[in-house]
Amino acid sequence: MVATLERPSPEHRINTETEIGSAIVMSRVIEPAAIVEHVSKVFIQRPLFRRGAVKEVRAVDDVSFAVGRNEIFGILGANGSGKSTLIRMLSTLLIPDSGRVEVFGYDVRRDEAQVKRLINRVSVEASFFKKLSPGENLAYALRLYGRSGPAVRTETYAVLERLGIARDKVSEPLEQLSRGMQQKVAIARALLTSPVLLQLDEPTTGLDPRSKLDVQGFVRELRHGHDATILLCTHDMAEAEALCDRVAILEKGKLVALDTVDGLKRRFGAEMGMRDPSLEEIFIHLTGRSLAEDTEDDNE
């Protein structure tokens, strides 16, 4: 593979005056890292070997947006809103029913192998071999990305240490570590593969405040130090406000708002009759519910 990605000029990348649900969203992003254009995904639940009603769930419904290179792009939505489905499509784990999904110009369906070399993902559940240690899990994951050897081991220890995982924990089975520590190992796994598009699906859920700040610091460092683009799905409005350049709000599979946090406040403040509404208030205004009212949805 010989393709290279040139870094954009400093003045890049995003004109923040955005519109919703149209190609204009794309045209405003000068150098897109990811393009989602008129994408839909429907899940059909059909009982196996049994008669019963076929259930159709429209998880993503004609969604369009573009993520600028080096941007931290937030996706807010309740469970069942379609955000994890979107992340999975961008991760090559789901094939869209219609529309176009591209990562740095590569189509996730046609150029799956190239896309995989550019991305990584941290999901809400730290998915590891629980009996294996952080060191063993990371050695496995890194070898899959073509990285192995003593230098990589040293680098692994350094990253884990910076995430607050002591050397003596590196060889303990992961199941003996706290949820917060497991999530930090998941973040280390993604960082160590140097993705140019990192997809974080509620990465700080369940972490203590200190760990949350550590992770948020790493996200910023990854963007500034490693030219990464970050796609962040979160329930945490403060986190979205602190980290994201722009925020997209999804509701029942549809994109209902996309702008900077300030832009959203300007636009919807007047509509809501408030001078400086919080992101949470805007979310409730647009979706009719707060994230605290979230319910589980199997298709997310």
């Binding site: 040139e6 550019l118 990305y145 073509g146 960082l191 140097s194 490693h226």
Partner: peptide
């Protein structure tokens, strides 16, 4: 993290 990645460009991991 790949410390050798400079700001100017990033080469995709190889295949073959």
């Amino acid at each position: 993290m790949n410390q050798s990645l400079g700001p100017a460009q990033r080469t995709l991991p190889g295949a073959g």
